[in-house]
């Protein structure tokens, strides 16, 4: 596993807050577009396919009703 799952932030609350605040006042559609652009920008910042793959797997672990991740919780 190359994905870092320990906190990288000295102030995790501030980081979470920053992302949440970015969505203030946005419609769901706008929020979705914002997140989409963020994913691409941050993926490029990571610049590592393996880490990206692991991040996607982690993000999908708790996805409800996704047929491609059935049973993933037991991993």
């Amino acid at each position: 596993m190359r994905l870092v799952t320990q906190s990288n932030f000295s102030n995790p609350d501030a980081a979470f807050r920053l992302v949440v605040e970015a969505h203030r006042g946005l419609t769901d559609e706008q929020s979705a577009s914002l997140d989409t652009a963020l994913v691409l920008i941050l993926a490029n910042q990571v610049g590592d396919l393996e880490v990206l793959r692991e991040a996607i797997a982690l993000a999908k672990r708790h996805l409800v009703g996704d047929p491609s991740v059935r049973g993933a919780k037991t991993i």
Partner: peptide, 23 residues
């Protein structure tokens, strides 16, 4: 719909960034 959004985001970011141009 979300795949279309990703495409849209790449096209929009491509105006300002090299990484998105290349996607």
């Amino acid at each position: 719909k979300q795949q279309a959004r990703l495409r849209q985001a790449v096209l929009a970011l491509a105006k300002d960034t090299d990484f998105a141009k290349r996607m």
